[in-house]
Write a protein that binds this DNA or RNA. Structure first.
Lengths: 301, 301
DNA sequence: GAAACTCGCCAAAGCGCTTTGGATATCGGC
DNA sequence: GCCGATATCCAAAGCGCTTTGGCGAGTTTC
């Protein structure tokens, strides 16, 4: 059922039917009602494609997810982020198109989205320090919002982020106040902007407590369970092991926990762990009793 | 840059340019070359939208991810699945549109995709027993492929699946052969088809080893860490606790491990754990030394 | 050397919408 | 009873492509 059929069916012009359905005023209330009922009855829904052609709008937002060519890892928070975004799109009649791409070919993807007029705008995921995508998108004049921020970028841009610095500063201070002097940081890859900010927060808190940062206590890598395990394992093997850890994600923290127990210690008694909790649906921080002390922010919300 | 401009630019008709670019034979090699070079030079890419309107094809595949209204959980394997699918779409010039929807409203989404002619076909995720989406999609005449299967469904359909039954039968047999008589099953929700098959495999192996299944040793729920923890915790608290566990996912297994250690036992010495490993990039089964004994299949591949 | 093809190209219609620029009818107001 | 608003509606153009139906010019065929 398309506009033409529907309008013939009603004995009206396409113009009138289109206007009735889109809330324009040049239609009598009675006609509008008749049109709306017929549309519902015939399960008519305008073709997004034709609508887009006619209006120049795509009614579509692009999400391009970079995958590091080195690690091939898809950050698990994307699932939750996408779920949250999708709810909003569904309510607003927008479509979401997803592209997963090796980060080396990302520029090409943005150019393609623009040239094909496939989207009205994009969401930039996983911003790095001074991320080249921001100038690129400016140049392409493709509207965008960054999930996170990009330190060092001089161009203006819209972003949505949590306060990573403050969050890690609080967490670190909390541990310092408890008397910890050697605190291991199990961070994400440091070219990721969020990781940089988290480290800054960590360092700020150490400084405030007059603790000299020790490079041996700061590890960064893709936030996998294995990274958490390996990092903690190595730090714990040192002559002066940390008495506490701060982790960039629950997944890392699980690895840290495994390392702690692997060397015969008990988490929470011998070694403290604080983690950042993205509130992922499948990886809740315990039930009534949390597994980890955590700073939390729901990616999905 | 659109077709019209490009063809004027070349002093050719739109017809010829279109044909040159799409590999039709009615174009001389010299002209084709000239067109292709101009297209590249001007970074011309046909609008998917217009192309779709003209051809009736959408050049787009829909993925609709059901989210249980009760649990609001996004299965973490979707991220990896989507990444794998996206690679193929990118190579073939297809677009992927993603819809995340409360499973109660799923029918509406499929109808919408069909009525709006937004996609050429869809991938059905998370099939349940006798899944109503299969008859629905048949009725809508919307082509689809199911990731997994739907037992009890009498209609024909295309699917892609791993051998869940065989996999869990092998894993269970392996444990039985090691002498285990009480094996806990930490399964996914049992209205999910894969969970049913996994349980079947588990039961088949028990039967082959003349072990009577004990309902107290079979738990099923959303595959979260907490589910693994709670299930194992309760089973271990029994008078006749299991000596081994079989888990439906790495995430569950991590919870099971936590429960085991929580009661003062050691995994691998006091209690054995075998898990299904979806080979998620961020949740590898250890480095050189695996964390868990596992049956594995890469979702992404 | 004429009939019959084949090649290489083009004009125009059409895909399903929106939107511009009227057209017609109705209605006060004086 | 006429004029200018106002309220409703419509025909047609246009969005950027593909595809149908043709049309000359060159090539075979016999």
């Amino acid at each position: 059922m398309n506009l033409k059929e529907l309008s013939q069916n009603l004995g009206l012009s396409q113009t009138t039917v289109s206007r009735a359905l889109n809330g324009y005023p040049e239609v009598s209330p009675a006609t509008r009602k008749r049109v709306e009922e017929a549309a519902k009855r015939h399960n008519y829904r305008p073709s997004n494609r034709a609508k887009g052609l006619a209006t120049g709008k795509a009614l579509t937002i692009g999400h391009v997810i970079p995958v590091s060519s080195k690690h091939e890892m898809v950050n698990p928070i994307f699932g939750d982020f996408i779920a949250g975004a999708g709810e909003t799109y569904a309510r607003s009649g927008y479509e979401m198109i997803l592209t997963i791409v090796d980060d080396a070919k990302e520029a090409d993807v943005y150019e393609g989205l623009k040239a094909r007029r496939a989207v009205d705008g994009v969401v930039v995921h996983g911003p790095r320090l001074n991320d080249p995508r921001i100038p690129l998108l400016h140049e392409l004049e493709l509207p965008f919002v960054v999930h996170g921020r990009s330190s060092g970028c001089t161009l203006p841009y819209s972003w949505l982020d949590v306060n990573n610095r403050q969050s890690f500063e609080s967490a670190t201070s909390y541990l310092c106040d408890l008397g910890h002097r050697r605190i291991g940081l199990v961070n994400g890859l440091e070219d990721m902007d969020f990781a940089q900010r988290r480290r800054d927060g960590y360092l700020t808190a150490l400084k405030a407590h007059e603790i000299a940062p020790d490079p041996a206590l700061m590890r960064s890598n893709e936030m996998t369970e294995v990274h958490g395990f390996n990092s903690a394992r190595e730090m714990l093997a040192s002559d002066t092991p940390p008495t506490a850890f701060i982790c960039a994600s629950m997944i890392c923290a699980l690895g840290v926990r495994r390392a702690i127990e692997d060397v015969g210690l008990t988490m929470g008694r011998d070694v403290s762990v604080v983690t950042h909790d993205d509130a992922l649906s499948y990886l809740q921080n315990g039930d009534e009793t949390p597994i980890f002390t955590a700073v939390r922010s729901s990616v999905r919300e």
